[in-house]
Simulated scan of single mutants.
Amino acid sequence: MSVPKDDDATLSARWSQGVLLKRDVFSTVERGRFRTDDGEVEGVLRRLDQVPFWSFAVALHLFSRERRALTLARDLDVGPKLLWAGRRALVRGFIDGAALHLAKPHGDVAYFRSAKAALRKLHRAGICHNDLAKEQNWLVGRDGRAYLTDFQLAACFKSRSRLFRIAAYEDLRHLLKHKRSYAPEALTPKERKVLAKKSAVASVWLKTGKKVYQAITRGIFNFTDREGGGRRLVNDAPVLVDLIRRNPDVRDTAIVAFADRRVGVGLYAFVEADQSALEKTLRNELAAAKGVKPPEHIQIVHALPRDAAGKPRTEILQLVAMNQIDLIEPMMRSDADREFLKDILEQRKNLRDRFNFEVAEMDRPAGQAR
């Protein structure tokens, strides 16, 4: 499928390509810059020109739902603003923040208070998101506020019908599930009751529709979406981690996924070891093992960034692999963290998708705004 000529003309004149964020059977999403009447701004482009023919009808339906929802939510300040929309492509504003599963706002009660307020504003406008179980659809802004993104499944209602109330209830319940994960002590008795009771529609969906959906998407379409990592992150990464750890010179490894313009989804292995020349040895060992495809990138690091429990901070490694370097700064807790990460950034392998606003991002003093 191709983008219509009028869409293509607009994008050619106003869009500057940047970092590929995601590519699947429903769309290609990338971050770049868009020229508006008031000047150039950061934006996110969703386009359908690389969607396979067999999923195009569904992709176009999802695209239309997002376009309508973003149009209605334009002035709510709870999600990205719609900057431009064509027939098979749209550009929404970029929100300066990281996805919930990357930011991990443990104990941040203020964040979940703002999330609830954002959801209330969305529902008052007659919009239900319908896909808030995914942590990647919740953003933690640099300002600490909650924002919503990816409105492909959103539904717009003209009245507060029974269906609207059910959808709104499920939106809230999914938000509270995230609150339970990150700030359980802040849950109120009323919120705990909501968590304990699914709507009848949700219960039926889990027992019937979801199973059919998974059978079609995973069985027929071979599509699995795990924070954009797909089947390679779900199936291949654990096997590769086990193979890499068998090398006696490897202390530990972490594998994350990144969007790749050539293969769709690539894998990036960060290997904790002392020998920088170990990469070639590991590639030979993985090739000899056959089976799963080796990672597109293997980077040897002296130490992996770790949290207080000693687990690798894959949320930071994910952003390194995706070249979203400017989003790492809010996650740094000290100058020591910045210095520690500097070597990893300087030696990173995935340099095809680079955004020039990354320059000197990690050298900015803590607390200084962009």
Rank of each mutant, 00 (worst) to 15 (best):
K290H: 14
E40W: 11
D6E: 15
A200S: 14
E361I: 01
L233M: 01
R142K: 14
F221T: 00
G141Q: 09
P295C: 04
V3Y: 10
R46P: 13
M322I: 02
V239Q: 05
H178F: 03
A360Q: 10
R14L: 01
A288N: 11
I316F: 07
F258C: 02
A183W: 11
A303H: 15
F56Y: 08
V292A: 13
A196W: 10
K211T: 03
F357H: 09
V19M: 03
K207Q: 14
I328H: 12
Y147P: 05
A167I: 01
A146H: 09
A269H: 08
A69H: 08
K311M: 02
K311S: 07
K158L: 08
P305D: 09
L163M: 01
G86K: 06
L175Y: 09
E346C: 03
A237M: 00
T10R: 12
R232W: 02
R31G: 00
Y169F: 15
K179W: 01
K81L: 05
H129D: 05
V359D: 09
R354E: 13
S181D: 04
Q318S: 15
D8I: 05
D150G: 04
W205P: 08
R283T: 01
Q50G: 04
A308T: 12
L100S: 03
L119C: 10
F258H: 14
R245P: 06
L286A: 05
A273R: 13
S334P: 14
A117D: 11
Q368L: 09
G291M: 06
A269Q: 07
D274T: 14
L195F: 10
K280R: 12
H129Y: 10
D24Y: 00
I127G: 04
E358F: 03
L102M: 13
G32D: 07
L282A: 05
E329D: 15
I325T: 04
H123S: 00
